[in-house]
Write a protein that binds this DNA or RNA. Structure first.
Lengths: 344, 344
DNA sequence: CGATAGAAATACAACGTTGTAAATTGGAGT
DNA sequence: ACTCCAATTTACAACGTTGTATTTCTATCG
């Protein structure tokens, strides 16, 4: 790989002059500029970003830590982050933590971080008790619902309001026996708890009594968990005409079980999920869901991180900021907008 | 951030001694080592990888260029690459090209590359005519079926054999009118052409005549394309008892149309896809498919790339290698192993 | 007790870049 | 031709590491 030095030698100028040309410095004689550019072209010179970044004290790289790319939600989030970062001339290094606490802690405190200007972190293994782990000396922005009120900026989904949207949507179509899949026993914060809270408040607001026998607890978030949770609900022999799955994967699993149990969706049971993953749109029937607005989340998170990066070293860095991105309801076949409309 | 220099000052030794301790150099007096480690702990020193890499002339980073993470296939591939890379102490910088030729070319020749030791590239916009673009001076490994016989290593799926597996599976369950969704008109290489080839050769081998009216051409690879292609097939009024979709997304879209058209899967129509994306497993009915063995692809690709990286500068770098990873058939509800077995 | 070998520690340079400050050039004004 | 200032170019240092070569210890041996 050619270096500035090689180009300088070929063009018969100093290294710094080549650097000036490369960086578009104003005061370079046109004839010199031309000579240098010719040399650059001849050698196929490309600036070495590692050296440039060492010099500049920054890397042009931000990290994104997610549990696993395999899960659509994170893959789509990652895609959105990549897009948002590119718009700001940053590249993204992705790390999979597997959702494991130890891996997350190691990443936060490991030396890989020194390759990044900052980190977008979507914790899963860490809990509220681990906030101390988040006290790091580099810009860090938290995503998701595991940890609130940490020492860093935080971008969250409208969990409560989003869940309420879903429930109101079901109520509006005449459903009154709305089950919940995927609640977490005893949880206070975290997506599950928040969404369950939204469910309860929407019911209350509508004057529909809360019935604990309609709540299915389940730790996992995957399709199999949804299928099993649905199975459990059916096994209880309680009457229900709608299901609010605390995320789309659970909802998709539930659709599967409902189908196998002979129940029609949405005629017998309406279903709404949460996340608006791509698959939801293509499920059979397509799954109504709450769209957390991933592109916006990514944009806000990247912007917040870059702001923090820019503030690095300044004495007065603002205290932790909390962003909340509005969620919207997406009506689909599994819970259409009109009451009991037929399937196409 | 503390540097070696800071640690050295605090410990009262030279910078190089600290470096020696950090790197586990053998000949350091235990007492010195202890002093240094104390200083490291006190300052929370972390090596600066950018500097280390500049010095070492490598970055510890490999690039992965894919069209879009939103598509499950690439998200899952990316996840597998991340895992494979981590096992070899490498991190991965992911770039989305959007599948656009110009973006792909810019990435190949841009300066971002200088942040990477090598690139895993899954082209989509580039075609066989663009092989010249692949003549770059850094280690490059190609993935996928867009370009064969390029000037670089190449890791490919068993497209022909995989497709033949799918078709033989359908034949074995008694199907004889097997439609194909997603063929590309006039294409010679590329996944679609190869898989279509596997389809034809499997039919031929079984003595089943090839019927052009069972082939639905379609450029796109997404679910909507599958749904539309299926619609088109139905519109032709030709008889068919099985569908081989050239990838899972097409297959999932087809399932949807079949469902809406009142056909039962697999009783009336068996369906097999290709790729084994996670969703296939959870579709209703679950989608039988050909598993290209992504984890192995990722592992082989990463290994090949790291080998090339290790060979950098050596005079005798081997000529381009082509790897092919065996595909396997995954029987599922949409095309079970036993003939016309009932749905669970 | 001095020589000597190996261990331990160090100085220095270099990776490729760019900021700083100093040096050189060229042309206008007189 | 001479001065002066802005334009242009340059030398040097530094970003944080580590390889190489060199120096300084220290213990052992004759």
């Amino acid at each position: 790989m050619a270096t500035l030095r090689d180009v300088a030698a070929l063009a018969g100028v100093s290294v710094k002059t080549v650097s000036n040309v490369v960086n578009g410095f104003e005061f370079v004689r046109p004839s010199t500029r031309e000579k240098v550019n010719a040399a650059i072209a001849e050698l196929g010179y490309q600036p070495n970003l590692v050296a440039r970044n060492l010099r500049a004290g920054k890397t042009g790289v931000i990290g994104l830590a997610v549990p696993e790319l395999r899960f659509s939600y994170f893959a789509e989030l990652a895609g959105a982050v990549l897009d948002a970062a590119r718009r700001r001339e940053y590249v993204v290094l992705i790390e999979q933590t597997g959702g494991e606490r130890s891996a997350e802690i190691e990443l936060l405190h490991g030396s890989r971080i020194s390759m990044m200007d900052g980190l977008l972190f979507s914790p899963l293994g860490l809990s509220g008790d681990d906030v101390r782990e988040l006290e790091v000396d580099y810009p860090l922005v938290l995503l998701g619902e595991r940890i609130f009120n940490g020492p860093t900026d935080h971008v969250a989904i409208q969990n409560v309001e989003g869940a309420a949207l879903a429930v109101r949507h079901l109520l509006a179509s005449g459903r009154r026996r709305i089950a919940v899949l995927g609640a977490h026993e005893g949880e206070k914060i975290g997506s599950a708890a928040l969404r369950l809270g939204g469910y309860r408040s929407a019911l209350e607001q509508a004057g529909v009594p809360f019935d604990p026998s309609l709540v299915v607890y389940r730790e996992g978030w995957h399709r199999t968990d949804g299928a099993e949770a649905m199975q459990e609900l059916i096994g209880r022999n309680v009457q229900f005409d709608a299901v609010f799955a605390l995320n789309d994967e659970l909802g998709l699993g539930a659709l599967r079980t409902l189908f196998h149990s002979g129940r029609r969706v949405p005629e017998d049971v309406a279903v709404v999920g949460f996340d608006n993953v791509t698959e939801a749109q293509f499920a059979m029937p397509s799954l109504a869901t709450v769209d957390p607005n991933r592109a916006k989340i990514a944009q806000i998170a990247v912007d917040a991180l870059l702001e923090r990066i820019a503030w690095r070293g300044k004495e007065d860095d603002p205290s932790p900021r909390a962003f909340e991105v509005p969620a919207t309801l997406v009506a689909r076949e599994s819970a259409p907008a009109a009451v009991r409309s037929a399937v196409a």
